[in-house]
Amino acid sequence: MSASRRLSLPFADREQAGTLLAEMLADAGLADPVILALPRGGVAVAVPVAERLAAPLEVLVTRKIGHPLQPELGLGAIAEGGEPVFDQGLLEQLGVEEDELAPIVAREREELDRRVRAYRGDRPLPALAGRDVVVVDDGLATGGTARAALRAVRRSKPGRTVLAVPVGSSRTVTALRDEADEVVVLATPPGFHAVGQWYVRFGQLTDADVLRLLRQGR
């Protein structure tokens, strides 16, 4: 589902993008939905979504698995409750074996666990079985973390999985349609290079920002 023709890009900020996304999701016929935001940026988008749908909001923590020599190059991702998901095409292209990434996966698991404790403490994720689950992020570039998140959610046997983002690469959006029952995206503009180029204000959020937004969303 896309609404590209109705929009004027860039978005002012994540809150505005989330408000527009919420209006589209309000017509999606969701049943007893749970909103799971991918921190950090996805939380700011998810707050107006949860408010509009009168749905519980929680974080689903994910971590990128970077190249050993180029950490910013994502070779995969991991989400809480799930297993590492690798970009097999990129691994083959670079000649990297999954076993070589085991130390990086272990470090990212530790950071993932730290963030879960920071954001939720001892509070578990909401029960997802049989419910419509909306996974929200601020945009899709390569889609690695979204893919890991969706696969982790599917292990809980939800009624329906929906990936919702304000903006994304058209190629990535197409690829992720096999991972979710529905992908809701407001815009898939040509010339997509990075999520931040489609926002006027796209500052990095801190853990404190995430906690403040979660309190607001709840």
Rank of each mutant, 00 (worst) to 15 (best):
V185E: 08
V162R: 02
A180F: 12
R160L: 05
E179W: 02
G168H: 11
R160C: 02
R171P: 00
P190G: 00
V185C: 15
A164E: 09
V162T: 03
L163M: 12
L163I: 15
R177Q: 14
E179G: 03
A164C: 12
L163G: 12
S170F: 02
V162F: 10
T188Q: 15
H193Y: 12
V183S: 00
V184N: 03
V183K: 00
R160V: 00
R171M: 11
S169I: 13
G168W: 12
G168N: 10
E182F: 01
A187P: 02
H193K: 11
V162M: 07
V173Q: 06
V183L: 02
P189F: 11
R171H: 10
A175N: 12
T172H: 05
L176C: 02
S170T: 03
A180M: 13
D181T: 01
L186E: 07
V183A: 01
T188H: 08
F192K: 13
H193M: 11
V173E: 04
T174K: 15
S169E: 03
G191N: 08
A164M: 13
R171F: 11
L186G: 09
L176T: 04
A164D: 06
H193S: 14
P189C: 09
E182W: 05
D181C: 07
L186V: 07
T188S: 13
F192L: 12
V167T: 06
V165N: 01
G191Q: 09
V184Y: 05
L186N: 05
E182R: 08
R177G: 08
R177K: 14
T188L: 14
V184L: 07
A175W: 08
T172S: 14
L176F: 02
S169W: 09
A187Y: 02
E179Y: 01
H193C: 10
A164W: 13
A180T: 13
R171A: 15
G168C: 13
L186T: 02
V167R: 04
G191A: 09
E182M: 07
P190M: 03
L186W: 05
T174D: 14
D181K: 04
V184S: 08
